[in-house]
């Protein structure tokens, strides 16, 4: 669609404003994998409530906005192998690297963090290569 980039920009500004609120309010970096991961491995026990409340906000707002859109198709793969392998890789990879698109990408690049920039380069290259191989060569996705 023609105006997709405008909504991308609007959404991006909202995401960045969320990150700014989390940083200036709580003094913490808004990284989705870190916030979730701390709940999984117990490292976030002291900040349990704010992690849960954050995730509640992430889930709730799309529920509230959904009626304005009607149907939203996420075009997600229905291949169990693809989904499970992808989920495992995303979970373990983001925890090993200590960040994902929000932590390393948005919060890291915006403070010109070398680690954030290097991480972003690697996950984009790996993602691009994966799509090329699995879509164009193997035809799986």
């Amino acid at each position: 669609m023609e105006q997709d980039w405008i909504w991308g920009l609007v959404g991006g500004l909202l995401i960045g404003t969320g990150g700014a609120v989390y940083l200036l309010g709580n003094g913490r970096i808004m990284g989705a994998s870190g916030i979730i991961g701390g709940l999984v491995d117990g490292t976030g026990r002291n900040t349990l409530a704010e992690r849960l409340v954050f995730l509640a906000g992430v889930i709730l707002l799309p529920i509230l906005l959904y009626p304005l859109y009607g149907a939203v198709d996420t075009h997600v793969s229905t291949n169990p192998l693809v989904i499970i392998a992808a989920g495992l890789l995303v979970g373990a990879g983001t925890r090993l690297a200590n960040g994902c698109t929000s932590g390393h990408g948005v919060c890291g690049i915006s403070r010109l963090s070398l680690r954030g920039i290097v991480a972003t380069v690697f996950y984009i290259l790996a993602g691009g290569l994966t799509v090329v191989v699995f879509r164009h060569l193997l035809g799986v996705i």
């Binding site: 373990a92 991480a119 290259l125 790996a126």
Partner: peptide
């Protein structure tokens, strides 16, 4: 980790 994440993301 970032390479693994990127592969899953793709």
């Amino acid at each position: 980790g970032s390479t693994m994440f990127g592969a899953g993301w793709g």
